[in-house]
Design a protein around this nucleic acid. Structure first.
Lengths: 152, 152
DNA sequence: CCCAATGAGTTGCGGATTGAAACCATCATG
DNA sequence: CATGATGGTTTCAATCCGCAACTCATTGGG
């Protein structure tokens, strides 16, 4: 998936210094994050991912392989005997905040007021509150009150 | 960008009920979020976006147009007289938590230990703390302690 | 044992998307 | 007027994607 030529060996990233760009090199395509979303929601098998996302099967094959190769999923034999299954690794599970913020942005900006949509709730059925960036002292942070510091 | 045939008119979404999928329909491609990232970091002009991302110019034209059409950017004449510029709208700025969680995931999982990367710091130069999902009572939430509730 | 169904892919192919590079129009400056 | 910067558009080849058909290995009955 990398696209910029490097002078040295190893995986070549779009923007090697930027963690945002590196993450997008791994999951910044049309389908990967929807596969992760469904994995978080209980999908385990090839067919189940295919049914939920509606993705083309050859593309699903490719995405499952890439996500596995990058350590977001592991393929293992299901506890119930003989079938294979895909499960989230710790790194994969750690994408939860990403999926959540994508969800919350969508709820705010991709639906007309009053239009129904699915909701994320906790174990008691209470909606998950908005995830808002804050400094160590608790003050909210945004693009205007932060900036990127180059590596040194 | 839509990919699933609809029976009725209007924009057709990959998965109309899911806010995650709708967000990805708008910014879930290779470049859009990097453009947003650079806009948050001060980029304003076509040339500046092109320089920072390294994206092909025709694709940049397309992305800027789509992001503008979807209300994440506005094109306006720069305060300094005659040049055009692109600026984030409120909806665009509201992607800050998404960019931040992508960044933090990348920092944790896309760099080898000790490898240098850029950092996000607040106005005083202090690193922005990890953004962690929590319930109304403050207990941390993850994929295992939440679930999606279908719209009703 | 034979037949069908299911799961998990693979293959082939046409059409859509992307990337690289060249081209073009409009200013501003020297 | 020549040069350079800005902001694109055009062209064309390469890649990616979706669809449908095919394979292959397991079950599950009858």
């Amino acid at each position: 998936m990398p696209r910029i030529t490097t002078r040295s060996s190893g995986p070549d990233w779009t923007d090697p210094d930027c963690p945002v760009a590196r993450t997008l090199d791994l999951v910044g395509d049309r389908w990967s994050l929807l596969v992760i979303r469904d994995a978080m929601d209980g999908a385990r098998s090839f067919t189940e991912f295919q049914r939920r996302t509606g993705i083309a099967r050859n593309i699903l094959t490719d995405r499952l392989r890439k996500l596995t190769a990058h350590g977001l999923l592991v393929q293992r034999t299901a506890p119930s005997g003989r079938r294979q299954e895909y499960a989230l690794t710790d790194a994969g599970r750690d994408l939860f905040p990403v999926i959540l913020t994508l969800r919350q942005w969508g709820e705010r900006h991709a639906f007309t007021p009053g239009e129904p949509h699915s909701t994320l709730v906790d174990q008691h059925g209470a909606p998950v509150p908005a995830l808002v960036p804050a400094g160590t002292d608790g003050t909210p942070l945004d693009a205007d009150t932060t900036h990127v510091q180059k590596p040194r």
